[in-house]
């Protein structure tokens, strides 16, 4: 009996790294574009196909489908942003694995030391933690978790996940 879980490697999505004071970011980007800032650490706000993850002090990640990358790039104008905010397109930096199935919690626990139980890691939780020894962004998806790792570790993660699912 092996685990009732499976994984797939997702195509890249649009991702922008935002750093700076919240009000400075809003002022530059415009509140109407963003889904609103999450009020707590390691939580996300989603709206209109965009999600904004609060992943560090004065640090957010803005995600969307890859076909909205140009549109977002035009709206965020990273190279023109004022000195006090940093906006960097990092869509290629991470590769995401969608892990799902009845045993998904156990499979995640093979790679991740963080408590991902629903009481500790609710629906809107998102955080950088560790997955098979590497830095990874973890959040929930339907029936499982999306785990993003630095793109260069993608093949190794696939190797690890395949072994973990045996």
């Amino acid at each position: 009996m092996s685990y009732n879980a499976s994984f797939e490697r997702l195509p890249i999505s649009a991702c922008f790294d935002l750093k700076g004071a919240e009000n400075a970011l809003v002022e530059w980007i415009g509140a109407e574009i963003l889904p609103g800032f999450p009020t707590e650490a390691n939580r996300r706000r989603s709206a209109d196909g965009l999600s904004l993850d609060h992943v560090g002090p004065r640090h957010w990640l803005l995600h969307a489908d890859i076909d909205r990358e140009d549109e977002l790039n035009a709206a965020l104008r990273p190279h023109l942003a004022p000195a006090e905010v940093s906006i960097v397109r990092i869509s290629d930096t991470m590769t995401t694995f969608r892990v799902a199935g009845a045993d998904v919690a156990h499979v995640l626990a093979i790679g991740c030391p963080l408590d991902l139980h629903e009481t500790a890691f609710p629906e809107d939780a998102v955080t950088f933690t560790e997955f098979f020894g590497q830095k990874a962004l973890v959040r929930r998806c339907a029936g499982g978790f999306d785990v993003s790792v630095e793109q260069s570790y993608g093949d190794m993660m696939e190797d690890c996940l395949t072994r973990a699912l045996r």
Binding site: I110, F132, G133, Q134, E150, S152, Y153, G154, D155, M156, D159, C160, R163, A164
Partner: peptide, 18 residues
């Protein structure tokens, strides 16, 4: 060690040209 065996004893990184 767990699953850290064979190819995944140590982490490894690839580029798109690997």
């Amino acid at each position: 060690g767990g699953i850290r065996e064979e190819s995944v004893v140590l982490p490894y990184r690839h580029t798109p040209v690997t």
